[in-house]
Lab assay of single mutants.
Amino acid sequence: FHVTIHVGDITFHIHGVSEEEVKKLEELVRRGADWREIKKTIEEIEK
Rank of each mutant, 00 (worst) to 15 (best):
H2P: 06
V3H: 07
V3K: 02
V3C: 13
T4A: 07
T4M: 09
I5L: 12
I5F: 06
I5C: 02
H6W: 11
H6I: 13
V7K: 05
V7F: 13
V7Q: 04
V7T: 06
G8V: 04
G8Y: 06
D9N: 13
D9F: 09
D9E: 12
I10Q: 11
F12G: 01
F12E: 01
F12A: 03
F12K: 02
F12S: 01
H13G: 02
H13Y: 13
I14C: 08
I14W: 06
I14K: 01
H15E: 12
G16M: 12
G16V: 15
V17L: 15
V17R: 03
S18D: 06
S18G: 12
S18E: 04
S18C: 05
E19R: 10
E19Q: 11
E20C: 08
E20S: 13
E20T: 11
E21A: 15
E21K: 06
E21Q: 15
V22H: 07
V22R: 13
K24F: 10
K24H: 10
K24A: 08
K24L: 15
K24Y: 11
K24M: 14
L25A: 00
L25T: 00
L25M: 03
L25N: 00
E26F: 14
E26L: 11
E26H: 11
E27W: 05
E27Q: 07
L28K: 03
L28S: 02
L28C: 02
L28Y: 03
V29W: 07
V29C: 11
R30G: 10
R31C: 10
R31G: 13
R31K: 13
G32D: 05
G32A: 04
G32W: 01
A33D: 03
A33P: 02
A33F: 02
D34G: 08
D34W: 01
D34K: 04
D34A: 05
W35M: 08
W35C: 07
W35A: 07
W35N: 02
R36K: 11
R36H: 14
E37I: 03
E37L: 05
I38E: 00
I38H: 00
I38A: 01
K39D: 02
K39S: 11
K39R: 08
K40T: 09
T41N: 05
T41Q: 12
T41R: 11
I42F: 04
I42G: 00
I42K: 01
E43R: 05
E43K: 04
E43P: 01
E43H: 05
E43G: 04
E44I: 04
E44M: 07
E44D: 09
I45K: 01
I45V: 03
I45P: 01
I45C: 07
E46V: 14
E46P: 03
E46Y: 15
K47I: 08
K47S: 13
K47C: 13
K47Q: 13
K47E: 09
